[in-house]
């Protein structure tokens, strides 16, 4: 593989895996939300907010992917000539958000499904349900931070 292909693999993983984590997480919350809404349609607004939260991992993944694409010239004027080693550096930089985005998206979804059960009985406690989910979010943010720092460190 050429350097550019390896870097593109990094883009694919960052966007694809983090996005899958979000999709699964949102799917889990959606199932629970439907259960609640079938009994209590007035809570639609609240459940929608909860359901949207695991979407951030996919956004982080897309952001990381976009940064790489910009660095290597996929978006922009012309492709940058990459050595194989530079290509690997981009792939490695993509991994933190790809891995943590995937797992945190799923687990955040599970926490939020429980939060749906929580607001089924106590709608006024929704804030606490969100706080528990944000605890999971922390690690997606750390991963994105690591990814960005690694990208900044790559000399072209």
């Amino acid at each position: 593989m050429e350097g550019i292909e390896i870097a593109m693999l990094g883009v694919a993983l960052a966007v694809g895996l983090a996005g899958s984590g979000s999709a699964i997480g949102i799917g889990i919350v959606g199932q629970s939300a439907c259960g609640l809404i079938s009994e209590d349609p007035d809570k639609f607004g609240q459940t929608l907010l909860l359901q949207a939260l695991p979407g951030t991992q996919g956004i982080y993944g897309l952001l990381a992917g976009f940064l790489i694409m910009q660095d290597i010239g996929i978006v922009g004027e012309e492709l940058v000539e990459l050595t194989v080693w530079q290509g690997y550096a981009f792939l490695m930089a993509a991994l933190p958000i790809a891995i943590a985005g995937f797992s945190s998206g799923i687990y955040q979804g599970r926490v939020l499904a429980s939060s749906i059960n929580l607001i089924a009985k106590r709608p006024e406690e929704m804030g606490k349900g969100i706080v528990y989910a944000v605890m999971v979010e922390t690690y997606a943010v750390f991963a994105l931070l690591a990814t960005i720092l690694m990208l900044f460190g790559i000399d072209l």
Binding site: I24, I28, V29, Q31, S32, A33, C34, G35, L36, S38, E39, D40, I106, R110, A113, I116, N117, A120, K121
Partner: peptide, 21 residues
Amino acid sequence: MIIDDTIYGYAVARVKAMETH
């Protein structure tokens, strides 16, 4: 990796809402 037990999400949330009655 789809976690199997989440198939209960809908039913559990609905039952939680029914519990309030």
